[in-house]
C-alpha cells in the first residue's frame, strides 16, 4: 500500500492539480479566474501524459550508436510529448477564445462577476 502511494507520487500531484483547476472553474465567480482554472486543469493533463512516458536511466529518443537500437528501454517514448505539443496548442487556442469572449462580455455588461452577470442577464431584454 505504502509503495503504491509513494510510487505514484507524481500522479497524486497531478490529480491534486486537476482538482484545483476544477475547483477554480466551479467555485470562482470571476470569469478570468475560471479561465485560470481551465489552464491549470489543462496543464495537469499535459503533465499526466509527460509523466507517464518519463523513465529513469533513459535518454532522448535519438539513435545513440553507443546504445544501439536493440534495447528500446534505454530510450524515452517520444510520442506522448509530441501529442502534448498539440494539446498545448489547443489549450492556448481555447484560452484565446475564452479571453475574446470575456472582452465582449465586459464591453456589453461591464462586469466579469458571474452573479452580477446573471443579475444583469435576467433584466436584459433579448
Amino acid at each position: 500500500m505504502r509503495e503504491f502511494l509513494v510510487g505514484h507520487y507524481f500522479y497524486w500531484f497531478i490529480f491534486l492539480l486537476m482538482a484545483i483547476g476544477l475547483a477554480g472553474i466551479v467555485l470562482k465567480k470571476n470569469l478570468i479566474k475560471k479561465v485560470i482554472g481551465m489552464s491549470i486543469f489543462q496543464v495537469a493533463i499535459i503533465l499526466f501524459f509527460v509523466a507517464s512516458s518519463s523513465k529513469w536511466d533513459a535518454t532522448v529518443p535519438i539513435l545513440d550508436p553507443a546504445l544501439g537500437a536493440a534495447d528500446t528501454s534505454r530510450y524515452i517514448n517520444p510520442l506522448p510529448h509530441c501529442l502534448m505539443l498539440t494539446a498545448i496548442v489547443v489549450g492556448v487556442a481555447t484560452s484565446g477564445v475564452a479571453f475574446a469572449l470575456i472582452i465582449t462580455i465586459w464591453r456589453r455588461y461591464r462586469t466579469l462577476d458571474e452573479n452580477e452577470l446573471l443579475e444583469k442577464l435576467t433584466h436584459d431584454p433579448d
Partner: peptide, 25 residues
C-alpha cells in the same frame, strides 16, 4: 446574450475535451 452562452459552452466543452484526452492517456 450569446457571448455569455458561448463562454459557458466553452468552459464545459473544454472540460469534456480534457476528460476525453485523459481517457486516451
Amino acid at each position: 446574450k450569446s457571448p455569455v452562452a458561448a463562454f459557458r459552452y466553452l468552459v464545459l466543452g473544454m472540460i469534456g475535451g480534457c476528460f476525453y484526452l485523459l481517457g486516451v492517456g
